[in-house]
Design a protein around this nucleic acid. Structure first.
Length: 320
DNA sequence: AGCCTTTGACCAGCG
DNA sequence: TCGCTGGTCAAAGGC
């Protein structure tokens, strides 16, 4: 990536004005004007599949990956009252005794959930091997270096976590030349990796059987906000400031309170029965749930809004 | 046994 | 050339 132009942007996610944290993504462009990389901040909300180029993402309705999302049958929950337990919990760092906010307040009477694997790379569907860690100048937190463990895969990523284990920044480099291992997310195992193939060809497949998307959006973000500027009015906010705002939005106290505003929760199925949310679960039943055609249409509608919003925002930013 | 993390050393780019 | 810095290597140890 040579002399990239860094363009800040935001992914509309939770109602950041209330309690949700906004995922943020910086698109970087190479000299020829083509998107070259993504920098994702506050990763605990969204994980951008590292194998996808920004250009591909814009064409792909299913590019949001939950960092840790319990697999569920696809469904919509309009007017639902939800708590932030829907949020993928951040991954605590074992080197600190502090509990992540999500754990420390997730139900005051819950027993302490077992700590997630130490310094575990983000659960974005790929397996990573940490090959270094360093305290970089100008950064408050140590930076960890990961390589994709797939054979001959050139993808690397740099992850910065704060003392609570929250990912404060993640930078992907390169493109995967393979599909994510189907056997599960990072940390689940390394077996079952697929043979290298053109992953890009699959990127737009909305019905891909992996967990392809999980969005939690409020009504404003669904009802035409993509046509207004309000959703992106802080697009020009400096990244550092934006990060501070996001940090505030992730305040442990506020993030746990019950949210009463109408929300629509979209969760797309996963093949795996991995409920890696920090708690231990015992499965006591299984049942086929048929998603109605209406639900599927609504799901596509939501993603359509998101993609249009992102594309528009990107276009505006590039024009400036 | 195999894979992973840790961590000090080493390397390369830059001013 | 030297020092600084970010990135990578690789041995050691853990799981």
């Amino acid at each position: 990536m040579s002399s990239p132009a860094k363009v800040p942007g935001r992914i509309p996610s939770h109602d950041s004005a209330s309690s949700g944290a906004a995922g943020a993504v910086d698109f970087r462009f190479s000299d020829d004007g083509r998107p070259s990389s993504l920098v994702v901040t506050q990763e605990s909300m969204f994980t951008i599949p590292p194998g996808l180029s920004p250009a591909i993402l814009l064409d792909s309705p299913g590019f949001f990956l939950p960092a840790q999302q319990p697999p569920q049958a696809a469904h919509l929950q309009p007017e639902a009252t939800t708590t932030r337990h829907h949020l993928p919990p951040p991954m605590p760092d074992h080197t600190t005794t502090k509990q992540s906010p999500e754990f420390s307040n997730s139900g005051s009477h819950h027993s302490q959930p077992p700590p997630v694997a130490a310094d575990k790379p983000t659960e974005d569907g790929y397996n990573w091997r940490k090959y270094g860690q360093k305290q970089v100048k100008g950064s408050e937190y140590p930076r960890s270096y990961y390589k994709c463990t797939h054979q001959n895969c050139p993808v690397k990523k740099k992850v910065e976590r704060n003392l609570d284990g929250f990912v404060t920044e993640i930078i992907y480099q390169g493109q995967h030349n393979h599909q994510p291992p189907r056997s599960g997310y990072a940390g689940v195992g390394t077996s079952g990796q697929l043979q290298p193939e053109n992953f890009e060809g699959q990127s737009g497949n909305f019905n891909h059987s992996r967990v392809d998307a999980s969005l939690i959006m409020n009504d404003d973000q669904l009802s035409g906000s993509s046509d207004s500027e309000e959703a992106g009015d802080d697009v020009t906010m400096p990244r550092s400031k934006r990060r501070n705002v996001e940090a505030e939005a992730f305040d442990p106290v506020s993030s746990h309170r019950t949210v009463t505003e109408p929300q629509i929760v979209i969760q797309v199925t996963s093949e795996i029965d991995l409920l890696d949310d920090g708690y231990k679960w015992r499965k006591y039943g299984q049942k086929w749930v048929y998603t109605s055609l209406l639900d599927q249409i609504l799901t596509l509608e939501v993603f359509s809004h998101v993609i249009r919003y992102l594309y528009k925002e990107l276009t505006i930013l590039r024009a400036n």
